[in-house]
């Protein structure tokens, strides 16, 4: 589903991501952990096609992101760490805007908006302007907009921040359902307990370099993910 090969991204003199390679298969929830400034967001933004990178290749379902960015973006959805949406639109207008861009039919979008907005208890607020939304409501809207076009791969940067426990639970269910249907998810988180329970695989990044990756069992062994992470950070 997603293959990252030797991804390198520099900001001036600083290497934010250095020769990072990863492979995410269909059905996998892949967690991405690391300290602040380790290169998580840069990697995720590169995969989402927002940032250009200096070296390496990113393939989405076999298509090169460099060569066919639009085709790749059609298959993915991205949720940033801070849901800066179009404040001048109402929630429903934003969802329709996203659905139009991704070519979702009128019937299909209506069905999905109903399903996800009900699940997140956002239906009654859909006509309100986004500028009136709380952080959590914006995050829910960003999640619905990501799911509205049934992407094959969803990239999320700290998706649980701002969500109430019920919404966080709903999101976890949606993530699992998408992967059970052959999709894949690549997301960053600082909540290691969530990563441990939710992820099939996990990658740890430190100073732009991937230091450990694999299935949850391979990475943590007999220890908890937190212990492994802290040990690796201390090295």
């Amino acid at each position: 589903m997603l293959r990252i090969e030797g991804l390198t991204k520099t900001y001036g003199e600083k290497k934010a991501v250095d020769e990072l390679s990863l492979h995410i298969r269909p059905g996998e929830i892949y967690g991405f952990i690391g300290h602040n400034g380790a290169g998580k967001t840069t990697t995720l933004k590169s995969v989402a096609g927002i940032l250009s990178f200096d070296k390496g290749e990113i393939f989405i379902n076999g298509s090169s992101l460099k060569k066919s960015p639009v085709e790749c973006k059609r298959q993915i959805a991205y949720i940033p760490d801070n849901p800066d949406l179009y404040d001048f639109m109402s929630g429903i207008k934003y969802l329709n805007f996203v659905a139009d861009i991704f070519g979702v039919s009128s019937e299909e979008r209506q069905k999905r908006i109903r399903e996800y907005a009900d699940a997140f208890e956002l239906t009654k607020d859909l006509a309100q302007p986004i500028s009136a939304y709380s952080h959590g409501m914006k995050q829910k809207l960003a999640v619905i907009s990501a799911w509205i076009h049934s992407p094959k791969l969803i990239i999320m940067d700290e998706p649980f921040v701002g969500l109430d426990p019920k919404a966080a639970f709903t999101l976890k269910e949606m993530m699992r359902a998408l992967c059970d249907n052959g999709g894949a998810i690549f997301f960053s988180t600082h909540v290691l307990e969530v990563a441990e329970k939710l992820c099939d695989k996990v990658a740890i990044i430190k100073q732009g370099t991937l230091i450990k990756s694999g299935t949850m069992e391979q990475v943590r062994g007999d220890e908890s993910l937190e212990e492994v992470f802290l040990e690796l950070e201390a090295e």
Binding site: F88, N96, F97, D100, S106, Q110, A127
Partner: peptide, 25 residues
Amino acid sequence: KAKYREKKVKEKSAFGALLTKEFAR
């Protein structure tokens, strides 16, 4: 108290959606 009422919307092309967004802004 803008209330959301589900209704069928007319689909737009990507360009149409972007243009509508610019007008809204």
